[in-house]
Design a binder for these strands. Structure first.
Lengths: 219, 219
DNA sequence: TATCCCCCGATTGAATCCAATTCAAGCCCG
DNA sequence: CGGGCTTGAATTGGATTCAATCGGGGGATA
């Protein structure tokens, strides 16, 4: 708008961060076109930093750019989403192995708390936020920056479809999720890496298989 | 320079592609600073497309950008490189599983041929090129674009250290590589996915462990 | 003599202006 | 009346120019 937006920090980074949050909150759905000029006006900047911001988001896998044509919110096919989940199945247990030895009792207590809050959550957005915090918190012990980034990227690119899945299953009364979370925290508490690995793998795999049963989420 | 460079296609993409090739060929070593103006002059363009090219390469993990400061060729610590290899261990066998059923007899024949050429190769750069072609060819049956991109990215970011490793081991007469390649092609030939999975995992894992024995490659 | 601070040059970030490309609507022709 | 071509508006890509930021060197002081 024309309100003088505070110009703190690098404009391109600021625009990218704001757009990323908006996309993850679900304010844009996959396939939505992003026009440079609109975004520029929205943030009170020129199109130049917007172009860099779109590049940043493309790197995150959230936006798809086509030369001389434009930018769209990335859309996954069911097959692509299954790929993402299969990668998650294989590398998130690895990340958890790095993280587990460094987790404090406080953190594990917080995991239990998040788990309980999730069971009580009625709103889809609340559940999404708690679920994300739960899993990412379980990874905070790891100092493996690159692996952590890879996992975060996978979470972000599949966020929209996870939301659709959640909407579907919370209405059906999905209990498996909570049981798996419970088992996961217990395995972490016992410092049983092999069991945690197995539970987490199964947790992601089951979600993938459930998603595959609902191709209509991908049109 | 001032020679009229053919201006085909999008400049930023063209610059990114050329720079990527140069980095992968080893013409820049990790930690080298990249000044926007130098690159712009080199390609006969302004700094604007150069900045977009740097963003593209940052997304590839080949370049590291710091706001208001500059761009450098990405450098990995030993720990980070081990992370990359552990991710490779877990997802490349997955990609191979997708690929194997679609590989033709011709392709498998070419794999044998590459394997033999590698054994005969004396030059490090020749070996690098053949090794890359060998493994990437074994993945060409897969239609999983996202998984394929992830693997390619991992190959590219570790290329420099694989070169250093190769230089070291070819002088020591490394036979394990060739034996593993042989076993891998045979497993593919027999369409034995489990065995191929195991051999490929071991192949990458062994390389990781050898690399870890040479921290001096990372300064 | 060592240390801290300030200033200046070098380099990156952003804005404006202009060129190139794409997509689609409308026209012409068969 | 339908299909292909042309033209034009909308949008993106690139060049030039100006502003902001960072790091290093020199000088003054304790």
């Amino acid at each position: 708008m024309s309100i003088p937006v505070p110009r703190n920090g690098i404009a391109s980074q600021r625009i990218a961060d704001n757009l990323r949050d908006a996309i993850l909150r679900g304010e844009y759905s996959p396939g939505t076109r992003l026009r440079q000029e609109d975004i520029a006006e929205q943030f009170g900047a020129s199109r130049l930093p917007v172009r860099e911001a779109l590049r940043i988001l493309e790197a995150d896998g959230l936006v798809t750019l086509v030369a001389n044509t434009g930018a769209w919110i990335s859309r996954l096919s069911l097959a692509e989403c299954e790929e993402m989940y299969q990668i998650r199945e294989r590398i998130e247990p690895l990340l958890l192995r790095y993280s587990m030895p460094q987790l404090t009792e406080d953190t594990i207590g917080r995991l239990h708390e998040l788990r309980r809050e999730m069971q009580a959550a009625t709103d889809v957005e609340d559940f999404m936020r708690l679920d994300r915090e739960f899993h990412l918190l379980s990874y905070t012990g790891a100092t493996t920056a690159l692996l952590g980034d890879s996992v975060l990227r996978l979470w972000n690119t599949t966020q929209h479809y996870r939301r659709a899945y959640t909407r579907l299953f919370r209405s059906e009364g999905d209990v498996a999720v909570h049981l798996e979370h419970h088992l996961l925290v217990h395995a972490i508490e016992r410092a049983d890496a092999d069991d945690a690995d197995r539970v987490l793998f199964g947790h992601i795999r089951r979600t993938r298989l459930e998603l595959a049963r609902h191709p209509e989420l991908f049109e």
